[in-house]
Write a protein that binds this DNA or RNA. Sequence first.
DNA 1: GCAAATTGGTTACAAAATTGTTACGAATAC
DNA 2: GTATTCGTAACAATTTTGTAACCAATTTGC
Lengths: 227, 227
Amino acid sequence: MERKNAEIVIIEDEEDILELLEYHLGKEGYDVTGFLSADNVERFMEEESPALLIVDRNLPGVEGSEFVASMREIGYDTPVIFLTAKDKESELEEGFKRGGDDYITKPFNTKELLLRVEALLRRSGVKQSDKLRYRDLILDNQSRELYIDKRKIDLTNLEYRLLYTFVKNAQQTLQRDFLRDEVWGDDSDHFHDKTINVAINRLKKKIDPFGEKGYFVPIWGVGYKLG
Amino acid sequence: MERKNAEIVIIEDEEDILELLEYHLGKEGYDVTGFLSADNVERFMEEESPALLIVDRNLPGVEGSEFVASMREIGYDTPVIFLTAKDKESELEEGFKRGGDDYITKPFNTKELLLRVEALLRRSGVKQSDKLRYRDLILDNQSRELYIDKRKIDLTNLEYRLLYTFVKNAQQTLQRDFLRDEVWGDDSDHFHDKTINVAINRLKKKIDPFGEKGYFVPIWGVGYKLG
DNA sequence: GCAAATTGGTTACAAAATTGTTACGAATAC
DNA sequence: GTATTCGTAACAATTTTGTAACCAATTTGC
């Protein structure tokens, strides 16, 4: 069961460790955002609702477990894995008591960290996000949104279904008949010649206003293909 | 938040360790049942539905993680903490992959074990009885009340369920069919077109009388999404 | 090569589909 | 019996999408 693409926030003041974590988690397909202190994390959480927090205990300013406690206080139930160099029993207890779910001591084994992240996401019931990618297009099928370079592009229902069909069948030439059945539904009796053209045209304008990317390549007499 | 009296099953073939665990967990108020092998555990689980399993990896007969995997296979989602003398990375991975939630190596620190048991019970337990947040909305699921900026907003039963469904599935586009099933119940034969619209409309007016916050974004031809 | 034929591209407009709003009354709860 | 809740209906407002007309590009037959 894959749960990749989940959004993970890391709060860690040691930059090399932060980078290491970002690298490994990113490679696994998680969407990682790193912070060097807890300062702006609350605002970020309001906006993004990440699925998991990895928090260093020993942060500058507010201490890690204090931050988590205050998050719990105001109602956030986001799963937390504490990270710490210290190994003292009292600190461990404090971390759990303040709402931590797991505890990993530095230096940590990367494999174990990844396994614990996965296990915790599984247990806390994070919904698997299914995103489809094609070049710089990211189709988030849960929110039914299209992102290009992290920018959200509004699509109508028809446009979304159309683009989805193409991305789902990337590398293939989609015949007009296929598109009609798949996107418009095969019950349509009178199907105008240019309906597909116009729809693709409008889609093109939205995702590539300057016509420089050539997403849709017409295959003459057949249909279209992603390019 | 006390979660004592929870029923815990321990499967451990070394009798002295089993006794030690039974003693400490019992002292904390848990209802503990020990097994020396996985043999009769499945039947016990059918009868008692324990809240947590503590499973030794190195059991006589069926290996611990195999047992857990087979439990998962037939639908049990009971949280599992593995216990093992071994510390090899491959075993760790196998344990997590087969559905374990946590991993403690022998000899273990009793305090840490108790903390991890508590944390896991907390996480897997009363998942929905807490507070749900979305932006400035706080849904207290115990009292079934909505707070906005610490001010209580009275909602009807339907309105609460509707809002709950949205907050529970924030970031997702909820299709009309889904909302009908989830909020109104799937037994409704004649479901009027506009029922959802009107309900959302009323909810909107209550939580955002001036229509300045845009909580509900219509997704044309699909449904609604929190915005 | 060149013109005719065929297919795709573009634009504006109108129809169609969907959502928003309000009022009314039946059902339910108090 | 009164008040609240909620579904229904009618109508308004909005958004989307198909159609048609025309232009551009490509292929085909000669």
